[in-house]
């Protein structure tokens, strides 16, 4: 197995890492999943490493326009990827929130808030592709996001608030 560089663009910033076999010190092991890289190496802890089996959606980030569960993707396979995490949604200069983040506050669309970054990222990816989704389309898009407190009804309100803008 070779040691090779990969480049990721995360929230608009380019990072180059060396990747290689698991027993080589000082590189990202080939077995490392993206959520670990984001959390442990870039300190982007908004994506949660909760189920480790792609079932809960708490680790969702947007990769090349698609919402992905970052616990199921090997970092080594992300060479050239453009990744947006929850930390990348607000305006880094002004601190202004993404309208979807603001809608989640306006509608109080979370309870414990642990699954919220994943829900927001999935919904953001949907809205990027389909700015005015129906309630059914929102439900389908979020069907891989686990929320046990039951914030679902308020999440629908928040996403619909953004979906209805500019209609």
């Amino acid at each position: 197995m070779e040691i090779k560089p990969i480049t990721l663009t995360v929230n608009g910033k380019k990072y180059t890492f060396m990747t290689g076999p698991d027993d080589v010190e000082g590189v990202i092991p080939n077995s490392e999943v993206l959520v670990k890289t984001l959390r442990n190496r870039l300190s982007l802890t908004g994506a949660k490493d909760a189920c480790e089996e792609g079932a809960c959606g708490c680790c969702t980030v947007i990769m090349n326009g698609e919402p992905v569960t970052s616990c199921m993707i090997l970092t080594v396979d992300c060479d050239g990827a453009d990744i947006t995490t929850i930390e990348g949604l607000e305006n880094p200069k002004t601190g202004e929130l993404d309208p979807l983040q603001q809608a989640f506050i306006d509608k109080y669309a979370f309870q414990c808030g642990y699954c919220t970054p994943g829900i927001i990222m999935t919904a953001r990816a949907l809205l990027n592709k389909n700015p005015h989704p129906t309630r059914e389309e929102i439900g389908e898009a979020l069907s891989g996001n686990f929320c046990r407190c039951i914030s679902h009804y308020h999440v629908f309100e928040a996403v619909e608030q953004v979906a209805n803008q500019g209609r």
Partner: peptide, 21 residues
Amino acid sequence: KYVPRQDARNIVTGKCVFMED
């Protein structure tokens, strides 16, 4: 009345600290 929680902004921006963070 509804007053947004003091941790609301941190929750929607991913900055809220849970045990693993």
